[in-house]
Computed example of a mutant assay.
Amino acid sequence: MTDHADAATLLTAPRVRALAEDLELRPTKQWGQNFVIDPNTVRKIVRLAGVGPDESVVEIGPGLGSLTLPLLEAAAHVTAVEIDARLATQLPLTVAELAPQLADRLRVVQQDAMTLTELADPQPTALVANLPYNVAVPVVLSFLERFPTLRRVLVMVQLEVAERLAAAPGSKIYGVPSVKSAWYADVRLADRVGRNVFWPAPKVDSGLVSMVLREPPSTSARREDVFACIDAAFAARRKTLRAALAGWAGSPVEAERMLRAAGVDPSLRGERLTVEQFAAIATQRIR
């Protein structure tokens, strides 16, 4: 579907600032608005996302359209979810001006991504976004839960958040986001991004997180039960699992029984366990 004739004119720093001025827009910290002003960066994001010409992409927080334009080139369809009414109204106009031949591939949904529960067809196969730092983890996990058609995710987030999402068991930064994202996908840090590609420039660097969806661990426990076990283990991450899971299991003795039945040493801490081990523990609770 995509060829060189479909190439869009991408947003440069002067264009981004001009659009913002026309809209009398001042980027807000409340909505984490840092707009990408470097065309090379958005090209890289689309390339690393591996979006194909038959795919439907959901983009969260498209802003002024820096990433939307190359996504429209690469994909069959893009649904852009934008909370800011001015930006949601402007985005189709920007696409119509800079890439009119791609305009019919775009659908804009003006809504808070955290409250979005369904999308009209075509259902998304990929999530690609420059996410606000303050809601990145809950937004990603909620979309993974709500949209089972997703096959891949590529999001730009604060570097520290990116490293936490991609952390492996045993790492000091391995925690709840690491384990829960691993329930859905193979997760890795795909690249690092400097501050100068944004306007306004944030005070921290960013990272690109790649997720390739796969089947969750084999377990008879519900996802909610596994996640409750994970939450309990990391709520007191300095405690042994026997102690940390006591409330969740009903007692320290019951926690130890479940841990041993799952083949897990009760003296370990949660940061040592894989998502498969948490699933095995949760399975014991329903027996």
Rank of each mutant, 00 (worst) to 15 (best):
Y184K: 13
L64C: 01
L87H: 12
N196I: 11
V157W: 00
L64I: 03
A8D: 13
E97P: 07
A280E: 01
V36I: 13
A282I: 10
G63S: 00
G61A: 01
P200V: 00
R188G: 11
F198V: 09
M114A: 05
L159N: 12
S251I: 13
L259W: 06
V187L: 01
A129Q: 00
A246W: 04
L64H: 00
G170R: 04
W183F: 15
E271A: 12
R237D: 02
V264N: 13
C229I: 08
D121R: 15
D186T: 06
V179D: 06
Q90H: 11
A221Y: 05
G32A: 07
A7M: 13
D265K: 14
T115R: 08
V209T: 04
L98A: 15
K172H: 14
D104T: 14
M258F: 03
I173F: 07
R257V: 10
E118Y: 15
A85H: 11
A136H: 00
V176A: 10
V176D: 07
G170D: 00
T117M: 13
L67I: 10
R222V: 05
R238F: 10
R242I: 11
P169I: 09
E59Q: 05
V209E: 09
M211N: 10
R43G: 05
A129E: 02
P200S: 04
E276I: 12
R188D: 15
G65D: 05
V140Y: 03
I37P: 06
L245A: 09
V16C: 04
D22T: 13
V197S: 03
K180V: 13
A232L: 12
S220H: 13
L23F: 07
A18E: 08
L208I: 06
V161D: 00
T274V: 05
L69I: 05
A232F: 12
E118A: 15
G263H: 11
V81W: 02
V42Y: 08
I286C: 13
T41P: 02
A7W: 12
N196Y: 11
A162N: 02
T68R: 01
A13Y: 08
I281E: 04
M211Y: 10
T94H: 12
E145P: 04
P70E: 03
R164M: 07
D231C: 05
R107W: 06
P100S: 00
T41R: 03
V157I: 12
Q158K: 03
M114Q: 01
S251E: 12
S171M: 14
